[in-house]
């Protein structure tokens, strides 16, 4: 696989360098909203959607910044535009697709402060991805996030039924599970290696 091919970029963002399990991005919702499968999956989908929107925004902003040679404003521009874009999407959804809004809407404000969103925008800039590569990168990152949070929720639903010592309840146990998941995802690392 060529490192700049679209399928490779997708797999790389989803499995090999999974945003949550390898890069520690988006840990907050990963720990906070992974209690039940039925909320974890919509959260993952909502995040993927926001990732796509902000990836497109970041691509356009970066073109403007490079054109006028003002790259030192990149961070401020990214965070401001992404936050506003998410808010706009939220308002549009509320007006035109209230059903979708009810199922995803509660997560949207949470997502804006999610590090994975800004991380995605910054990484795609540093990797000099073009338009289609950026889109695929965003889709891959979203898929990887959804996969990680869904797996985590499945594990935690089972754990609710088991007897755990008091000091390990809550965050400590979730993090330990995250470590084990991360360990198993390490197995994907060689997927794109030179053959």
């Amino acid at each position: 696989m060529q490192p700049d091919s679209l399928i490779f970029i997708f797999l790389n963002a989803a499995l090999m360098n999974n945003f949550v399990l390898a890069l520690f991005l988006g840990l907050c919702p990963f720990l906070g909203v992974s209690g039940k499968l039925e909320t974890a999956v919509p959260m993952g989908l909502a995040t993927s959607f926001v990732m796509l929107v902000s990836s497109l925004c970041a691509y356009v902003i970066n073109l403007i910044l490079v054109r006028y040679d003002i790259e030192f404003l990149r961070l401020i521009a990214y965070i401001a535009v992404i936050a506003s874009a998410v808010q706009l999407v939220e308002m549009t959804m509320k007006k035109y697709t209230p059903g979708l809004f009810r199922s995803l809407g509660i997560f949207l404000p949470l997502i804006t402060t999610n590090c994975a969103i800004l991380g995605l925008a910054l990484f795609q800039t540093f990797k000099h991805y073009d338009f289609f590569q950026s889109v695929v990168y965003a889709l891959g990152a979203g898929a990887g996030f959804t996969l990680a949070i869904a797996l985590m929720a499945g594990l935690r639903e089972k754990l609710d039924l088991s007897d755990v010592p008091g000091i390990a309840k809550g965050a400590a146990l979730s993090l330990m599970l995250g470590g084990l998941l991360s360990l198993s995802f390490m197995g994907f690392a060689g997927l794109g290696g030179a053959h």
């Binding site: 696989m1 490192p3 490779f8 790389n12 090999m16 360098n17 690392a189 060689g190 794109g192 290696g193 030179a194």
Partner: peptide, 8 residues
Amino acid sequence: AAQGYADM
């Protein structure tokens, strides 16, 4: 540059 085991 080339793709290695983990990343470029």
